[in-house]
Design a protein around this nucleic acid. Sequence first.
RNA 1: GUCCCCAUCGUCUAGCCAGGUCCAGGACACCGGCCUUUCACGCCGGCGACACGAGUUCAAAUCUCGUUGGGGACGCCA
Length: 493
Amino acid sequence: MSEIRLRFPPSPTGYLHIGGARTAIYNWLYARKHNGKLILRIEDTDVERSTKESIAGIIDGLNWLGIDWDEGPYYQSDHIKEHIETAHKLVTAGHAYKCFCSKEELDAKRQDAVAAKKTYMYDRTCLHLSAAEIAARENQGTPHVIRFKVPDGDGAVVFEDKVYGRIERKYRDIEDFVILRSNGTPLYLLSNVVDDIRDRITHIIRGQDGLGNTPRQILIYEALAAPLPVFAHMSLTLDPQKAKISKRSHGEVVTVQFYRENGFLPWALINFLVLLGWSPASDQEIFTREELVASFSLEGMNKANSIFNYQKDHPKFITDPKALSTNAHYLQTMPVAELIPLVKDVLQGEDLWDESYENDRQAWFSTTVDLIRSRFHVLTDFARAGRAYFSDDYVMDPKPVKKNLAKHEKIPEWLGLLAQRYESLPEFNKEEAERVTRELADELAIKPGILINGTRTVVTGQAAGAGLFDVLMAIGRDRVIARLQKFSREGLS
RNA sequence: GUCCCCAUCGUCUAGCCAGGUCCAGGACACCGGCCUUUCACGCCGGCGACACGAGUUCAAAUCUCGUUGGGGACGCCA
């Protein structure tokens, strides 16, 4: 039997939009699940925007996400000739006609209609032109477009959308749309269909905003006597105000690149996006790749639009909280061995990487990453909140300073004493460190928590962290003592 | 203005097609509590929704109609 073939057809914009990524994910999952092929086709007919760089941006995004394709990238611009020929063929076959109405004339008619609150639709002036009239105008050099001739009568285009069910659109509600510009170049509606036919696309999964195009495109398929693909339109993802999410109004958060730069794991982003408008027949929310491919089905697509819950300038959430939470889940539970290369990237980016982490200090590095990750949400936390583990050049967060240090006047002195105790320990291990810490607190008649939290603040700069004595082992005796002594000398100056 | 689509907690959603087991389940967020040297995790608990109105039915979140609300499409953009 014929194979299942899907496509992802982005237009080059320089970045991959999360809505586009979501579309790509569904097409990809469907192809993988049904042993089909995914074709990447760049719709680059808008030459202005289609630079090498803007195409690379899209491909980078897909690569980072791990969405792979089987054919392509193909370029729509390579087939313009075919699109044009098809338009002429449609004219010859009587499915389309030349229209000599000027843009100005049509704009005027449209404006009149709008002003009169009437529906505007092309009035078919040129449909009724005789062969002689057409020839005359062509001889005069009057420019013309080619319009598709929508069938007459009471009929309708009817199709079964895999998500929305039966969709019907009456012929009389469809305008004779332009398929070829007066400069001879083809329009999207035509090019897209011609490409899909040539690429033998069997399933089209696209945004619900394409639903309005579908009846017109089906008309083209029919006029070309080409087999119809299966259509599945997916709900849109909107912002909390129910507006389309766009880079222009929301900024970088709508780009896949943003998530890479902000320490997301690609799979976590996919996991989050796939659940926006789709759900399995269970309560499962975390999936391996295999599980997702296995459970994906168009049946689970939600017809209602979903909302990308992003609040601009939120103090705590840089993006949808659920996306963050999904990412934190993976970050905290994935095998450390898989996490380490990702942490390496982040540390290298901040100049915090040391070759020894891969050699003699490998075990230490692994233990430390595992120790500190339980408080982290994104990879970049390793270079920020986790900075003190990899560098002596870190700053103390004002909050714990206020809470754990500033409140106690004598704490520089106390921590100095603590450093001495650590120094004189025959062996610096968790148990011994804890024992002498509590012993000192006892002697000073203060709560151990004061010493413990003070030490954490000085040594890591952070309010949150793992159990202090694990922290001390990770940072190491020498660095702990040095940091405590420095604080003892300099205080909060 | 015309056409198309949609409607369950703040958000993502299950349930709807094959009406009763749903005074509606899960997740995120939020709020309490437990644990604890901090924070987080974890655990326990709380808050919180079937848009509205009719109809069908013994019975409606589920079926029908209407209202309202929302989204999308109506380009010589893609």
